[in-house]
Amino acid sequence: MTALLLSVHVLAAIVLIGPIAVAASLFPRYARTEPDSGAPRLLHRICRGYALAGLAVPVFGLATALQMGVVADPWLLISIGLTLIAAALLALVILPAQSAMLTEPVAATAKRLTMTTEIFNLIWAAVVVLMIVRPGSSTGA
């Protein structure tokens, strides 16, 4: 059962979080340079839709952690905290800024959005490293 849960968790992360990372990264450029092309709306729709579906990632991650008995491990607690920060950035900063830029593309907003999106992506990179290295485990460094 652990292998199945872990497989679904990893696949969901790749298939659901990956598109958000790419679309959110591309959005500021297209919103600034090609606001009437339809690309910004599509990228925003991808971010918004995949954000909801992306809730499956922590759900299956927590189920996997419970199955493995690692819920109290520091690497997992840090990963959960980082995931919450990334989710908050997406829901409270990135998606609202994208919505605002769809109606009025402002260069200053695009710069802030780019920076926030880069932070969002770096957080996910840190979570992936923690999931792979798992400090203190037999597979850790």
Rank of each mutant, 00 (worst) to 15 (best):
residue 109 T to S: 14
residue 22 V to G: 01
residue 24 A to P: 02
residue 4 L to G: 09
residue 50 Y to A: 07
residue 39 A to I: 13
residue 43 L to G: 05
residue 62 L to N: 02
residue 58 P to H: 08
residue 60 F to G: 00
residue 117 T to Q: 06
residue 61 G to K: 00
residue 71 V to W: 04
residue 45 R to H: 10
residue 23 A to T: 02
residue 133 V to T: 09
residue 77 L to T: 02
residue 82 L to N: 00
residue 128 V to C: 07
residue 62 L to F: 11
residue 20 I to M: 02
residue 100 A to K: 04
residue 131 M to Q: 03
residue 117 T to S: 13
residue 120 F to G: 02
residue 97 A to W: 03
residue 50 Y to P: 03
residue 40 P to W: 01
residue 4 L to M: 12
residue 46 I to Q: 08
residue 26 L to E: 03
residue 118 E to G: 13
residue 130 L to D: 07
residue 67 Q to W: 06
residue 44 H to C: 07
residue 107 A to N: 11
residue 12 A to M: 12
residue 123 I to R: 00
residue 129 V to E: 01
residue 11 L to E: 06
residue 51 A to N: 10
residue 1 M to E: 09
residue 5 L to N: 01
residue 1 M to L: 12
residue 114 T to A: 12
residue 116 T to A: 15
residue 129 V to F: 10
residue 124 W to V: 08
residue 90 L to F: 00
residue 92 L to T: 09
residue 61 G to Y: 00
residue 51 A to E: 10
residue 103 T to A: 15
residue 63 A to S: 13
residue 116 T to Q: 10
residue 56 A to M: 11
residue 47 C to M: 08
residue 30 Y to W: 15
residue 51 A to T: 14
residue 24 A to D: 05
residue 102 L to T: 04
residue 39 A to S: 09
residue 132 I to R: 03
residue 116 T to D: 10
residue 110 A to G: 12
residue 104 E to L: 06
residue 77 L to V: 09
residue 8 V to D: 05
residue 66 L to S: 12
residue 132 I to W: 12
residue 115 M to Q: 12
residue 108 A to S: 15
residue 45 R to A: 15
residue 77 L to F: 05
residue 36 D to C: 03
residue 41 R to K: 14
residue 50 Y to I: 01
residue 130 L to M: 10
residue 52 L to M: 09
residue 56 A to G: 04
residue 83 T to E: 07
residue 126 A to C: 13
residue 58 P to Q: 04
residue 91 A to E: 07
residue 130 L to K: 05
residue 37 S to M: 07
residue 31 A to V: 08
residue 60 F to P: 02
residue 75 W to C: 01
residue 70 V to M: 01
residue 104 E to H: 11
residue 41 R to W: 08
residue 22 V to Q: 05
residue 21 A to K: 07
residue 2 T to R: 08
residue 79 S to K: 08
residue 119 I to D: 03
residue 46 I to D: 05
residue 34 E to R: 14
residue 122 L to E: 02
residue 39 A to H: 02
residue 123 I to Q: 03
residue 89 L to Y: 11
residue 116 T to S: 14
residue 11 L to Y: 11
residue 61 G to M: 06
residue 23 A to N: 00
residue 87 A to K: 01
residue 72 A to R: 12
residue 3 A to M: 13
residue 124 W to Q: 11
residue 123 I to N: 03
residue 37 S to I: 08
residue 32 R to E: 13
residue 103 T to K: 12
residue 29 R to E: 01
residue 113 L to D: 07
residue 73 D to K: 12
residue 26 L to K: 06
residue 87 A to L: 13
residue 25 S to I: 00
residue 46 I to R: 03
residue 128 V to K: 00
residue 33 T to N: 13
residue 17 I to H: 02
residue 85 I to C: 11
residue 3 A to K: 12
residue 46 I to W: 04
residue 34 E to L: 14
residue 103 T to D: 14
residue 60 F to S: 05
residue 103 T to C: 02
residue 25 S to P: 07
residue 22 V to W: 07
residue 112 R to D: 11
residue 75 W to T: 02
residue 15 V to L: 15
residue 51 A to C: 12
residue 130 L to R: 06
residue 45 R to T: 15
residue 56 A to P: 04
residue 3 A to V: 15
residue 59 V to G: 02
residue 35 P to D: 03
residue 66 L to I: 14
residue 24 A to K: 01
residue 110 A to E: 06
residue 75 W to F: 15
residue 44 H to R: 11
residue 126 A to M: 14
residue 17 I to Y: 00
residue 125 A to L: 15
residue 6 L to A: 13
residue 91 A to V: 06
residue 69 G to V: 06
